[in-house]
Write a protein that binds this DNA or RNA. Structure first.
Lengths: 214, 214
DNA sequence: ATAATGTGTTACTAGCGGTAACCCAAGTCT
DNA sequence: AGACTTGGGTTACCGCTAGTAACACATTAT
């Protein structure tokens, strides 16, 4: 039987694959999301067709690359979400974890949010909704799961949890993106502001005296 | 004086510009965000260099195109935000307006969120933060302004309002994107769920009995 | 020895964004 | 009239990209 050979070859292929991914990582970190296949191949010390044999096409490579970082980030987030602390502390820890990650490696973060744009030929199917960064979707789903598992939301809790999961992730992402660009305040202030928003301070705030209108 | 001539020519140029934008609109609506300059020129019945004379480069065209839709959407949103009703109703109306817009014309919406990726040559500056859809930024800033104008948030209200503005817009966008792809519930249910989230139901919900851990 | 298999290369295609060079009609100056 | 600038238009090109076909070398199995 050639099972041993098969595994041997497969291990070799996997090693190559990891090497290629690491090279791709370096290039993406240097050149941003529009890193070319040529550049990645050069960084890996090989030529294009090998990349294509391993990953099919550019979006295949990018998907593999994204999965690694996405998994890593999700693990950190899970740790913060599951920490033994009260709800507010857990929410703040999770927000802070995410923001610290995008602050530490903005290029990686940008790459994860701006994936393919690939598919040269007739993309008429269009598939609205599938285009968004997979990272956001996965974070949304995971958060939804945690919410549903831990909170008592009454009937139709599953739907509510999913809406909230994706909504909160979107809030975190958009605020983080803006914050990373403008740096209008410290990370801690941002975390507290967002947590306050989730804690209903928007609804609780009073109308401004002498406001326009009535 | 050639002022009259100048205006005449300018009017002609503006008419052309509008025609070109409408053609571009049709193509983008058909081919998605990666519509090529060739295709747009063909649709307009002319050739590429004319497009470049009018808009400089692809991101120029896309920016002009995006501005039209962005302005239109923002006007609708302002109307909903400024309606004479209580806060909860206004929030729900605004959410619903946005969701109705992206539901009615998903291709346009997708285009607005996935702008350029342009700039072929050395983009090493990177400029994290500038890459995101301008629509999101503008919505965030506008909402921040409304929040700051109308709500009494105590000290550092401006910063808080901006964080909330971008955060809420991001929540709306991410939830809308997910909803558009999966259609897990009606628009009205989504609106109410999001408003509930903003109204602090996350903080108010009880722990699930028999939950994991403690 | 010879055939097969994996690993790598060179050299190519098709299409993209973007531009230089040219073309031509209309108006203007002398 | 004839020369001459000027705006709208085109053809033909450059350099780049993603992706592929075809070929070359080594190793191993028969």
């Amino acid at each position: 039987m050639d099972t041993t050979q098969r595994t041997e070859q497969q291990r070799s292929a996997d090693r190559r694959r990891r090497e290629l991914l690491e090279a791709a990582d370096r290039v993406v970190l240097r050149d941003g999301p529009q890193a070319s296949m040529n550049a990645i191949a050069a960084e890996a010390g090989i030529t294009k067709p090998i990349l294509y044999r391993h990953f099919g096409d550019k979006s295949g490579l990018y998907a593999a690359l994204a999965k690694r970082h996405t998994d890593a980030l999700l693990n950190s987030l899970r740790a913060a979400l599951d920490a033994p602390a009260d709800r507010r502390e857990r929410v703040e820890a999770t927000l802070d974890t995410y923001l610290a990650a995008i602050e530490a490696r903005p290029q990686v973060y940008r790459f994860l949010m701006h994936p393919a744009d690939g598919s040269t030929g007739a993309d008429q199917g269009f598939d609205v909704g599938k285009h968004s960064a997979p990272l956001l979707r996965r974070m949304g789903e995971e958060l939804a799961q945690v919410i549903e598992d831990r909170l008592d939301l009454g009937p139709s809790s599953q739907q509510l949890a999913r809406v909230w999961g994706h909504g909160i992730v979107g809030m975190m992402h958009a605020a983080g993106d803006w914050w990373l660009g403008e740096r209008p305040c410290s990370r801690d202030e941002l975390v507290k502001s967002l947590a306050d928003l989730l804690w209903g301070r928007l609804a609780a705030a009073g109308d401004k005296v002498g406001g326009p209108g009535f």
